[in-house]
Amino acid sequence: MLGTDFRTGSPNWLDLGSPDVPAATAFYSAVFGWRFAPAGPDTGGYGFFQVDGKTVAAIGQLTEEGASSAWMLHFMTPDVQATAAAVREGGGTVRMEPMDVMGEGWLGQFTDPQGAQFACWQPGRTAGFDLASADNTLVWAELHVPDPVADIGFYAGLFGWRHAEMDAPGMTYRVLSIADGDQEDGSFGGAAPLADGGAEQARWVPYFNVPDVDASTGLVERNGGSVLMPGADVPEVGRIAWVADPAGAVFALLKPDPSQR
């Protein structure tokens, strides 16, 4: 289960690139009750989404021409320079060379060999988000690519991730875990093949824990977002829906099965 005891390969940050930060802030405040806290005067409008004063995600203005609004998962690394070298060796792409973020930590942005974008955060003064797996916070990270087995091998080369296979409707789902400790306790996400036809984009999808999936999808629609997959019950997982915000950034909603907590 996702938490804040960050170790190599743990998700430790999550941010949204948006073409309209005020509009996105209003949307996520309506859907999740998040409050926005500006990061400071020299951060280009970057700021934090918070629950009860604890940072759960962040948001920044898209600056690259033609870039699409999307959520970006960050994974903890003790050495982002070494991770960047491993990305290249593994067939991935370094989109942004590692950089020092005002002493808060080091950031690098990458694309895996099958086109899914991700980032890495080497903690400095900031270790990562303050809260996970609580209501309206990140609870799961899911990779969707054409060949999950090959892509898991790429990430294993970066972080030492382990995986376990489980049967799911029409596919084999692979549960991902960090390298350290008990494998089940260290699980944080999963990997699934893209739908037939390849219309779906290779990407990481963040799942947010919500008390009521159907109520949350209603809030998404009433605030200008769209429902890509309405709420559905998945045995031994919980109730899930896929949605997108008004700018098209995709995310998922999950009310976990109480027996799996």
Rank of each mutant, 00 (worst) to 15 (best):
T4E: 13
D5R: 14
D5K: 14
D5P: 10
F6W: 10
F6Y: 14
R7I: 13
R7A: 12
T8Q: 15
S10A: 12
P11Y: 07
N12D: 09
L14H: 03
L14P: 00
G17Y: 01
G17V: 01
S18N: 11
P19T: 12
V21Q: 05
V21T: 12
V21M: 10
F27Y: 14
Y28K: 01
Y28F: 13
S29M: 11
A30P: 08
A30D: 14
V31Q: 07
G33F: 11
W34N: 01
T43Q: 05
G45Q: 04
Y46V: 00
T55S: 04
V56D: 06
Q61M: 13
T63S: 10
G66F: 05
S69D: 11
W71V: 11
F75I: 00
M76D: 03
P78C: 04
A82R: 14
A82P: 08
A86L: 12
R88E: 15
T93S: 12
T93C: 03
V94W: 05
E97M: 09
D100I: 11
V101S: 00
G103K: 12
G103H: 07
G105C: 05
F110I: 00
P113N: 12
Q114K: 10
Q114E: 11
A116S: 06
F118A: 01
C120L: 02
P123K: 05
G124Q: 09
T126Q: 15
A127K: 14
L131A: 10
A132P: 06
A132K: 04
S133T: 13
D135T: 07
N136A: 07
N136C: 04
T137A: 05
T137D: 09
L138P: 03
P146N: 10
A150S: 14
D151L: 11
Y155K: 01
L158A: 03
G160L: 10
H163Q: 15
A164K: 13
M166Q: 12
D167K: 08
A168G: 06
T172Q: 08
R174E: 06
R174H: 04
S177T: 13
I178T: 12
G181V: 13
Q183W: 02
D185P: 04
A192T: 13
A192Q: 05
G197S: 11
A202R: 09
V210Q: 09
P211T: 09
V213L: 05
D214W: 08
S216I: 03
L219K: 15
V220L: 07
R222D: 14
G225D: 08
S226F: 02
P230Y: 12
P230V: 12
D233P: 05
V234G: 09
P235W: 04
I240L: 09
D245N: 04
D245K: 03
A249C: 06
F251R: 01
